[in-house]
Design a protein around this nucleic acid. Structure first.
Length: 467
RNA sequence: GUUCCCAUCGUCUAGUGGUCUAGGACACAAGAUUCUCAUUCUUGCAACACGGGUUCAAAUCCCGUUGGGAAUGCCA
């Protein structure tokens, strides 16, 4: 059985790249009927980077994307003693050694290694060098000094590196805590992970980790190194590229399905298919098909995809997921009546919205009335339009109050059409000022439909109030 | 510096030696529909980084060049 895993460190946010790695791991596990495991790599206890709430962020964002895990290891830190145990075993086997190099000495050696092109060599590698008494040692792995290591990566293909070029990595810090490279290997082994799909920035580490596995006599997992996601400038996507976390997109009204679809298509494809359902993704996704060239993240395409998913959403479902955004905007819980008004407006909003935030902004026009604590803001163009012909607005108000206009889309349409004929103007021009008074903008969902939804009374009220 | 990786329209990609005057999507431009804005539809613009091979034949295989990226931590 195939067992994949995601091993994020709790940083307080979930990077888009981590999310895609999670997606690939999850999909491949689903595709093969295997298991997707989650392990929190919280071994870095540096107070600047460590805070416990960060773990919840991982859980929440993963759940939001719909990537549920089959197994959880909630603290790598809690397994430290097991990692140390392995380090000691490695020493016993003669595969690792205590190294007493001071930071200053290391600095010098590093300087040298940059010149020679060879990794630093600790003098304590040979047991002949006597250890100084006042220094706490680290434990280093003894890398082979000859031969070539070969990594058969399912996405990158065969990668060869000369062993003499790989440094004796630190397994245990001088304070007695295990390092990342040791911990991952031990945990992956103990959890039975046999497919390691992770970012390509780990390729170099893999060669070190393979030596630990070899020294312990464990079975090598299958590796797949997914190329990094790049920002528009072509460098590894990072915070300076703007919105780079799933939270950023969740909060600005992106649908998890849209992000799912976008991330899936970034570095993997299925012919010319653009819109891929989760079911099809599971059916089609094979980790061996992941592309090896890095891709640039394109916000615009994600947004287009999001708009499409919004348009294709079921009205009621869409209303429900948009609710938090609207309630945030109006600062109160929506009543049943408000919800039903909104629901009527959804068909018109969803083909105009790029994000749920857009719907929240547009939705206002369907729900406010004289009791609402809401003051519209008009932009310059709107004010100009409003002021262009107040007399006509007054006439319209009068007509609405006195004439018996059928309050349907057709009825209202007929009224304005006739009125426009009367004045020999285009209906669009005639309708512009009332549009601003009713929807607070020169740009809005269809006006007549909106008027029907809010009712004649509210229509007249707005015309009178904002004329 | 060293090691490793990458290279098709602006972007994501299809393409696994002939069906490629290179296909799709986003973006962009034009037009049609229209009460604004959108949606929808039609059309257009636009790419195999370069140079050598291999082959009857190369976007596709090999080598080199150039360009880009990553790693090089007692972070993960």
């Amino acid at each position: 059985m195939i067992k994949t895993r995601l091993a994020p460190s709790p940083t307080g946010f979930m990077h888009i790249g981590t999310a895609r790695t999670a997606l690939f791991n999850w999909l491949y596990a689903k595709h093969t009927n295997g298991k997707f495991c989650l392990r929190i790599e919280d071994t870095d206890r540096n107070p600047e980077r460590y805070f416990p709430e960060a773990v919840d962020v991982i859980y929440n964002e993963l759940k939001w994307l719909g990537l549920n895990w089959d197994e959880l290891e909630e603290s790598q830190y809690a397994r430290s003693s097991r990692h140390i145990e392995v380090a000691n075993e490695l020493i016993k086997k003669g595969c690792a050694y205590y190294c007493y190099l001071t930071p200053e000495e290391l600095e010098v050696l590093r300087e040298q290694s940059r010149k020679t092109g060879l990794p630093i060599k600790s003098p304590y590698r040979d047991s002949t060098t006597p250890p100084p008494s006042n220094i706490k040692p680290v434990i280093r792995l003894k890398m082979p000094t000859s031969g070539v290591s070969i990594l058969n990566d399912i996405v990158q293909g065969e990668i060869k590196v000369e062993n003499q070029l790989i440094e004796d990595l630190i397994l245990v810090r001088s304070d007695g805590t295990p390092t990342y490279n040791l911990s991952v290997v031990v945990d992956d082994h103990d959890m039975g992970i046999n497919y390691v799909i992770r970012g390509a920035d780990h390729i170099n580490n893999t060669f070190k980790q393979m030596q630990i596995i070899k020294a312990m006599g464990w079975e090598l997992p299958t590796y797949g190194h997914v190329p990094l996601i790049l920002g528009q400038d072509g460098s590894k996507m990072s915070k300076r590229h703007g919105a780079t976390t799933t939270e950023d997109y969740r909060k600005s009204g992106y649908l998890p399905k849209a992000l799912f679809n976008y991330l899936l298509k970034l570095g993997w494809s299925h012919g010319d298919d653009e819109i891929i359902s989760i079911e099809d993704a599971i059916k089609w996704f094979d980790a061996h098909d992941i592309l090896k060239s890095p891709a640039k993240f394109d916000h615009t395409k994600l947004t287009a995809l999001n708009a499409l998913y919004i348009r294709n959403s079921d009205d009621e479902e869409l209303l429900n997921i948009t609710l938090p955004f609207i309630e945030e905007k109006v600062q109160h819980q929506l009543s049943q009546n408000e919800k039903s008004l909104l629901l009527k407006g959804i068909p018109y909003m969803k083909e105009r919205a790029k994000t749920l935030l857009d719907i929240a902004n547009m939705g206002i026009i369907y729900i406010i009335d004289e009791t609402s604590n809401f003051t519209p803001t008009f932009d310059e163009k709107s004010i100009k339009t409003l002021n262009s012909d107040k007399n006509k607005i007054d006439e319209i108000i009068k007509d609405f109050e006195e004439k018996d206009i059928p309050w349907t889309k057709e009825g209202i349409n007929d009224y304005f059409k006739e009125k426009a004929n009367q004045y020999d103007m285009k209906m669009g021009d005639l309708v512009a000022p009332p549009r601003v008074a009713i929807t607070f903008s020169t740009i809005s969902p269809p006006l007549f439909e909106a008027m029907v939804i809010i009712g004649k009374q509210e229509t007249i009220r707005r015309l009178k109030t904002y004329r």
